[in-house]
């Protein structure tokens, strides 16, 4: 196995162009697990930890651009208020040692349906920036995922960054894990509201072959939400919203949870997310 370790972004793109089969590795929190457990034995690893550009973040045209190598810990500490749902998801990742190394870029590169970052990126309408030696393109998160571990990223491309729109309303992220400490998501849910435009975005994690949006639920909430006053939803509306979110999921039974439980828990998370967003609007937090 070759270990490629470029120290510039141009060098990384060139290496990827020359060795498209090379597996990019940032914190190693996904890739190295697969190596250690013998699930995968690539011919080459492309270590991106020495590329300074990937560790940068900043504002850009109404977005916050977060380099693919920004660790979850950094994301929580430095980017938090500019991408609240994403930061909440980052805060919920595994454990401090994993958050110190893992990054959004790795989450997108691996594209595990259980990745914590996907729902907030979907809900917030984020863009994924892909780069190759041939150029750069930006893909909406909602078009990025194709299947478990599969995305629209081409072999010669690297995930360069995500661009998260500046928040225009309350955002929440919640997940259910199998035990209290150190949890991988059994199911997760993100909700992001645009108060001015009266629009809602959703993201569902761990409940389908890819992270999913619940579009019917978004439209329902946009109609029913008390945008001016932030009143709590009626029990019927909350229930309907939960059902629409659960209905958008395509979960399976696996060792972490049953499909039925996942749908149930999603409905609970969704109802609670609505209530929390409403409370934030009421409180004038936005």
């Amino acid at each position: 196995m070759d270990f490629l370790s470029p120290d510039t972004w141009a060098g990384a793109l060139a290496a990827k162009a020359a060795r498209p089969e090379a597996v990019p590795v940032m914190g190693g929190t996904d890739v190295m697990v697969e190596l250690n457990l013998g699930r995968r034995r690539p011919h080459a690893l492309l270590d991106l930890t020495r590329v300074p550009e990937l560790a940068r973040w900043g504002a850009e045209d109404g977005y916050t651009r977060v380099g693919a190598g920004v660790s979850y810990t950094r994301l929580v500490e430095r980017v938090g208020s500019r991408a609240p749902a994403l930061a909440a998801a980052a805060r919920s990742v595994a454990s401090p040692q994993i958050r110190n190394r893992g990054s959004v870029g790795g989450n997108l590169g691996g594209a595990s349906p259980a990745g914590d970052c996907h729902p907030p990126l979907l809900a917030a309408g984020a863009l994924v920036e892909l780069a190759s030696a041939a150029g750069v393109r930006r893909v909406p998160a909602s078009e990025f995922y194709l299947g478990p571990g599969r995305t629209v990223r081409r072999e010669d491309e690297l995930v360069a960054a995500v661009l998260v729109p500046e928040p225009r309303g309350p955002q929440v992220f919640a997940k259910v894990g199998p035990r209290n400490a150190m949890v991988i998501a059994v199911v997760s849910f993100a909700l992001a509201l645009d108060v001015a435009a009266r629009r809602a975005g959703t993201g569902i994690g761990s409940a389908g072959p890819t992270p999913l949006r619940a579009r019917a639920a978004e439209e329902f909430l946009a109609r029913e939400f008390d945008w001016a006053g932030g009143a709590d939803p009626s029990p019927e509306a909350a229930r309907r919203f939960g059902d629409l979110v659960a209905g958008a999921a395509r979960p399976i039974d696996d060792v972490r949870g049953s499909a039925a439980y996942r749908r149930h828990a999603l409905a609970v998370l969704a109802r609670r997310a609505w209530a929390r967003c409403a409370a934030e609007v009421r409180g004038g937090g936005v």
Binding site: F3, V25, G27, G28, T29, M32, V33, N36, L45, D47, T73, P96, Q97, I98, N100, R101
Partner: peptide
């Protein structure tokens, strides 16, 4: 920074 060394090349 605490790091899981089994996941670090």
């Amino acid at each position: 920074t605490p790091t899981a060394s089994c996941l670090l090349p």
